[in-house]
Measured scan of single mutants.
Amino acid sequence: NQASVVANQLIPINTALTLVMMRSEVVTPVGIPAKDIPRLVSMQVNRAVPLGTTLMPDMVKGYA
């Protein structure tokens, strides 16, 4: 199973992502692939993302 990107903490709306905010985990449904973590750094979330939430492409500005 492919690992997805999961929030390692509460990420407030419009926050630029950093490595410490994200972890990889095998979850259902599948979200953004963990291999894309380096690409996500500095991108902003367009909503508040609670701890443990799988990041989906529509949550990150400029990803999709």
Results as ranks from 00 to 15, higher is better:
1 N>W: 05
1 N>F: 07
1 N>C: 15
1 N>K: 04
1 N>Y: 08
2 Q>R: 03
2 Q>S: 15
2 Q>H: 15
3 A>H: 15
3 A>D: 15
3 A>V: 05
3 A>I: 11
3 A>N: 13
3 A>E: 15
4 S>Q: 02
4 S>T: 04
4 S>V: 02
5 V>N: 01
6 V>G: 00
6 V>D: 00
6 V>P: 01
6 V>C: 09
6 V>E: 02
7 A>C: 06
7 A>F: 02
7 A>L: 04
7 A>H: 01
7 A>W: 01
7 A>I: 06
8 N>S: 13
8 N>M: 07
8 N>C: 11
9 Q>W: 08
9 Q>G: 05
9 Q>F: 12
9 Q>H: 05
9 Q>C: 09
9 Q>E: 13
9 Q>L: 10
9 Q>N: 05
10 L>N: 09
11 I>L: 13
11 I>R: 00
11 I>K: 01
11 I>N: 00
11 I>H: 01
11 I>D: 01
11 I>E: 00
11 I>T: 02
11 I>C: 03
12 P>A: 09
12 P>N: 10
12 P>V: 05
13 I>D: 13
13 I>Y: 07
13 I>F: 11
14 N>P: 00
14 N>L: 08
14 N>V: 03
14 N>T: 05
14 N>R: 05
14 N>H: 09
14 N>I: 03
15 T>F: 11
15 T>V: 10
15 T>S: 07
15 T>K: 06
15 T>H: 08
16 A>P: 12
16 A>M: 09
16 A>R: 06
16 A>N: 08
16 A>Y: 06
16 A>L: 10
17 L>D: 02
17 L>N: 00
17 L>F: 02
17 L>Q: 00
17 L>R: 00
17 L>V: 04
17 L>T: 00
17 L>M: 11
18 T>F: 09
18 T>A: 08
18 T>E: 06
18 T>R: 05
19 L>T: 06
19 L>Q: 11
19 L>H: 12
19 L>D: 14
20 V>S: 13
20 V>E: 13
20 V>W: 04
20 V>F: 08
20 V>Y: 08
21 M>L: 06
21 M>H: 11
21 M>N: 08
21 M>I: 03
22 M>S: 00
22 M>T: 02
22 M>G: 01
22 M>H: 00
23 R>I: 14
23 R>K: 13
24 S>E: 14
24 S>I: 10
24 S>T: 09
24 S>C: 13
25 E>R: 03
25 E>K: 03
25 E>F: 03
25 E>S: 05
25 E>T: 07
26 V>T: 11
26 V>L: 12
26 V>F: 09
27 V>M: 04
27 V>H: 03
27 V>S: 08
28 T>K: 04
28 T>E: 15
28 T>I: 05
28 T>L: 04
28 T>A: 06
29 P>T: 13
29 P>Y: 10
29 P>K: 05
29 P>W: 04
29 P>V: 10
30 V>L: 11
30 V>H: 13
30 V>D: 15
31 G>E: 00
31 G>R: 00
31 G>P: 00
31 G>F: 02
31 G>N: 01
31 G>Q: 02
31 G>Y: 01
32 I>K: 00
32 I>E: 01
32 I>T: 01
32 I>R: 00
33 P>I: 09
33 P>T: 06
33 P>G: 05
33 P>N: 13
33 P>Q: 10
34 A>K: 04
34 A>P: 15
34 A>C: 15
34 A>H: 04
34 A>I: 08
34 A>G: 12
34 A>V: 12
35 K>Y: 15
35 K>D: 15
35 K>R: 07
35 K>F: 15
35 K>Q: 15
35 K>N: 15
35 K>L: 15
35 K>E: 15
36 D>V: 04
36 D>F: 03
36 D>I: 04
37 I>G: 05
37 I>D: 01
37 I>R: 05
37 I>V: 12
37 I>F: 03
37 I>H: 03
38 P>D: 10
38 P>V: 07
38 P>W: 06
38 P>R: 03
38 P>S: 13
38 P>T: 08
38 P>I: 10
38 P>M: 05
39 R>K: 14
39 R>D: 07
39 R>I: 11
39 R>T: 11
39 R>C: 15
39 R>L: 15
40 L>Q: 00
40 L>N: 00
40 L>M: 08
41 V>T: 07
41 V>M: 08
41 V>D: 04
41 V>H: 09
42 S>N: 12
42 S>L: 08
43 M>Q: 07
44 Q>V: 11
44 Q>A: 07
44 Q>P: 11
44 Q>W: 05
44 Q>M: 11
45 V>S: 14
45 V>W: 00
45 V>G: 01
45 V>P: 03
46 N>V: 09
46 N>P: 03
46 N>R: 10
46 N>H: 10
46 N>I: 14
47 R>K: 15
47 R>F: 09
47 R>L: 12
47 R>W: 14
47 R>V: 11
47 R>P: 02
48 A>L: 11
48 A>Y: 07
48 A>Q: 14
49 V>T: 05
49 V>R: 03
49 V>F: 02
49 V>Y: 02
49 V>S: 02
49 V>W: 02
50 P>S: 12
50 P>Y: 09
50 P>W: 06
51 L>R: 07
51 L>D: 14
51 L>T: 14
51 L>E: 14
51 L>N: 10
52 G>H: 13
52 G>E: 08
52 G>W: 06
52 G>S: 14
52 G>Y: 09
52 G>N: 11
52 G>M: 09
53 T>H: 15
53 T>S: 13
53 T>M: 13
53 T>D: 13
53 T>F: 10
53 T>P: 01
53 T>N: 11
54 T>V: 10
54 T>Q: 03
54 T>R: 03
54 T>Y: 02
54 T>S: 04
54 T>M: 04
54 T>F: 02
54 T>H: 02
54 T>P: 08
54 T>N: 02
54 T>L: 05
55 L>R: 00
55 L>G: 02
55 L>V: 10
55 L>C: 02
55 L>S: 01
55 L>E: 01
56 M>Q: 14
56 M>G: 04
56 M>N: 08
56 M>K: 07
56 M>V: 11
57 P>W: 06
57 P>Y: 12
57 P>V: 07
57 P>F: 11
58 D>F: 06
58 D>S: 10
58 D>E: 12
58 D>C: 14
58 D>L: 09
59 M>A: 08
59 M>F: 13
59 M>G: 03
59 M>L: 07
59 M>Q: 06
59 M>D: 13
59 M>I: 07
60 V>A: 02
60 V>F: 05
61 K>W: 10
61 K>L: 12
61 K>G: 11
62 G>E: 11
62 G>Y: 10
62 G>Q: 08
62 G>W: 04
62 G>D: 13
63 Y>F: 11
63 Y>I: 05
63 Y>T: 04
63 Y>H: 10
64 A>E: 14
